[in-house]
Design a protein around this nucleic acid. Structure first.
Lengths: 210, 210
DNA sequence: ACCTGAACACCGTTCAAGT
DNA sequence: ACCTGAACACCGTTCAAGT
């Protein structure tokens, strides 16, 4: 029932392979479907083998989060007016989450600042510092912006049309019915709207540009 | 080991009691700690008894989400300029999530529109409609705003000081070090900042006020 | 209608053992 | 170092049985 390999025989398994298979599994079947045992089965390996490449399940989930962030933020444009750079940052994160929707739940209740994304943070901090922001203010802007985008992915519009809302009761909610005429706002449109409003609402930095 | 009760003897269990105990458990031990079996033990009842009051675990989680939203949104102020009403709506949601941080993960990957919160939605839609918004635009504003607040709770600042970031490597990230001097931005400050910027960035409705 | 109890098909993880 | 295999303490949920 298990993999046909003698003990001690290398499977040639790599942390990268484990991580890649995990991301695939999550993208295909959702966050809840991720299990160490199923992942091992898919890699034709015993479950305990995974613990040699990953600390535990929590560690695997952390790695998935890091994977998505790295994919999203590497090569982000930083040479533009600060509002434009922020918009690009938000959109890059959005595209990353869109590519890996199953990973979104792992972002919840996980620290926003990890060793792996300090490098991305530092680049953004430099852009805002050069635009005249104090570092504390810059960090607040960047972290809040990332969470603004994440939030749009966390509360998706309903899958089916109207899940469980009886047409009878709908008569009491005419504005809701009218607003939903063209369906609930998509994640796409909410992200665009959120980015536009949030960035437009940011005040100019108090410091002078260098 | 189980409850000492003959089959068929009423435990007098109520859906409200089940839900209340579940919220308590989640608030105390976090979302991951919620289990049907533990919840049953706490209520001195067999695990399967819960299925008479709740469809399944998913249904219980849905009920927890609904519980938090109802607590947050009932009695919200709607008689004020629309920007003020939006601010109050966002802050009310924020307080609800703050009171039940363990419930936050359940909001992720759950539809934003449920039968239970259509009533809250309709009230907000009326406020924005009266201010001159088209219903579709109003729905977009409200849903995006709720997700903006939710997102701030989804990516909490790290628990300990610097979790796993070696002081050696920190030398390469001077702006990050300076920005973190007074700690990572709190959820509180990020919510306030997000609300201020997002609402300030909203355009006036194209329609005329009634 | 409400509750129990056994059973099924799963989990994550420790530990000892192989090469 | 890398992998296996059995074992432990859990899960959610179905099903048949009680009153």
């Amino acid at each position: 029932v298990g993999p046909t390999r003698a003990q001690g025989r290398h499977a040639g398994l790599t942390r990268q392979q484990v991580l890649h298979a995990a991301v695939q599994m999550v993208d295909r079947d959702g966050a809840a479907a991720l299990s160490m045992r199923k992942l091992a089965r898919e890699l034709d390996v015993e479950a305990m083998t995974l613990y040699h490449h990953v600390k535990n399940k929590q560690g695997l989930e952390d790695a998935i989060v890091q994977y998505v962030m790295d994919e999203a933020f590497t090569g982000a444009e930083t040479d533009a007016p600060w509002r434009t750079v922020l918009e690009g940052y938000g959109r890059a994160f959005h595209r990353g989450l869109l590519a890996h929707p199953g990973a979104v739940p792992f972002f919840a209740s996980r620290p926003a600042i990890t060793p792996g994304n300090v490098v991305h943070l530092e680049k953004m901090l430099r852009v805002l510092r050069d635009a005249g922001f104090a570092p504390q203010d810059a960090l607040l802007v960047i972290q809040t912006l990332a969470a603004v985008v994440l939030g749009q992915h966390s509360a998706p519009p309903a899958d089916d049309g109207d899940p469980g809302i009886d047409t009878e009761a709908l008569a009491e909610f005419p504005l809701f019915v009218e607003a939903m005429g063209s369906g609930a706002p998509s994640v796409e449109s909410r992200v665009e709207f959120a980015l536009q409003a949030f960035i437009a609402g940011l005040k100019e930095p108090s410091g002078a540009a260098i």
